[in-house]
Computed example of a mutant assay.
Amino acid sequence: MTQATLFAAEYGAPVALIAGCDEVGRGPWAGPVVAAAVVLDPAHPIAGLADSKLLSARRREELDAHIRAYSLAWSIAESSVEEIDQRNILQATLLAMQRAVAALPCKIDLLLVDGNQTPQVAMPCRAIVGGDAVQPAISAASIIAKVYRDRLMTELAQRYPGYGFERHSGYGTAAHRAALLTLGPCAVHRRSFAPIRRLLAQSIRPPTLKDVVS
Results as ranks from 00 to 15, higher is better:
Y163H: 04
I196M: 11
A137Y: 09
A141H: 01
D132M: 03
I144V: 11
P206K: 00
L200M: 14
R190Y: 12
R198F: 14
L199W: 07
I138P: 00
Y163V: 12
E155F: 04
I138W: 05
Q135D: 00
I143N: 02
C186N: 14
I196V: 15
A174D: 08
V188D: 11
G170K: 02
C186H: 10
A187T: 06
S192M: 09
H176I: 13
P136G: 03
S192I: 12
L156M: 09
A140G: 10
F193N: 01
E155M: 08
T182I: 11
A175N: 06
V121K: 01
R149K: 03
I138F: 03
T154V: 10
V188Q: 13
Q120G: 07
I196Y: 06
F193K: 09
L183S: 09
H189S: 15
R205P: 00
R190E: 11
P195W: 09
Q120D: 14
G170E: 03
A141K: 07
A133H: 08
K146S: 02
V188A: 04
Q120W: 07
P195T: 11
N116K: 00
I143L: 06
D150L: 01
L199R: 03
A137W: 13
P185E: 04
L200W: 02
T182C: 08
Y148S: 00
A175Y: 08
Q120V: 14
L152A: 01
G164S: 04
P207L: 12
R197Y: 11
A157E: 02
I204D: 03
A141I: 01
R167D: 05
P185F: 14
Q117D: 06
R191G: 11
N116R: 02
R198M: 15
D132H: 06
L152Q: 02
Q117G: 00
L181D: 12
R149Y: 02
A175K: 06
A194R: 15
R191N: 11
